[in-house]
Design a protein around this nucleic acid. Structure first.
Lengths: 133, 133
DNA sequence: GCTTCATGTTTACATCCGTAGTCGATACAG
DNA sequence: CTGTATCGACTACGGATGTAAACATGAAGC
């Protein structure tokens, strides 16, 4: 199976769902955070053990989505990927997969399926107005 | 976002990426299709063997996303899930996961990240206009 | 100096996913 | 009737994922 070199742009290694939760915690935390910090942030909510958090963190490090900096006995972790980039990437994936790459189709779908409230509509109009001139 | 508890109809079992490709073929095919038909449609594009297509089909049947109808010695497959529902579900998942459930935020992001062309913008405006009155 | 605690590393394991080969039954060619 | 092409069912297998325990090591208390 001659696998394509996977987007020449090195390795944006796919981030899993559980890993994403960790990333969110890191993005929140603004600045470095220890494994314990992350655990305190997401452990409760997701009902994860500290061990699980550690595993996810090390996988993220492998995937080069998170960097580490030694701080005495432990590590401090910080995201290597900007949240915006991640969000953008995921959004694009969805649009490509389900809407033939046309973002406008997504919006159309959201609108038609009533996933958008009247408030949303107004808000979007506002955004468009600003963007357009 | 007062969203309903997820279609009371129990488990819409998650559909994987590869499986989704099969679903697309089924949705296209309008009407029943045999495994061979599906293979002819997606086999080439994804470089899958007939065996792979069969496996994916049976997994989809298990997940109750596809139904079968015997036709002589073989089966005819047809989607049990409407494409719109699938698309809506996936879109919602993304919005929930990355935009705190606010669809307008997604649109805002697309706009700001220049994922929307000027044409898209105009098109969306048009859609909104129609939807709004 | 030991005991204990915190911390990263290694190992574990069930399930899912992508991908496909093999098997048993059947329809069809001759 | 016998060989062959088909078809679905079953089996396979490596890698990813979710979840976590066991382990090694150094720090810190006493």
């Amino acid at each position: 199976m001659p696998r394509k070199p996977d987007t020449a742009t090195q390795s944006p290694e796919r981030i899993s769902d559980a890993e994403h939760a960790i990333m969110e915690a890191l993005w929140d935390q603004k600045g470095d955070a220890s494994a314990q910090d992350i655990f305190d942030t997401v452990g409760e909510a997701r009902d994860w053990s500290l061990a699980t958090v550690k595993t996810l963190l090390s996988r993220l490090v492998q995937k080069q989505a998170v960097s580490t900096r030694p701080d005495g006995r432990r590590f401090l972790y910080s995201p290597l990927m900007a949240r915006d980039d991640y969000v953008g990437g995921e959004s694009r994936r969805l649009v490509d997969k389900l809407f033939g790459g046309k973002a406008a189709s997504l919006v159309a779908h959201l609108a038609e399926s009533e996933a958008l409230t009247m408030d949303d509509l107004t808000e979007i109009e506002q955004i468009l107005k600003e963007l357009k001139q």
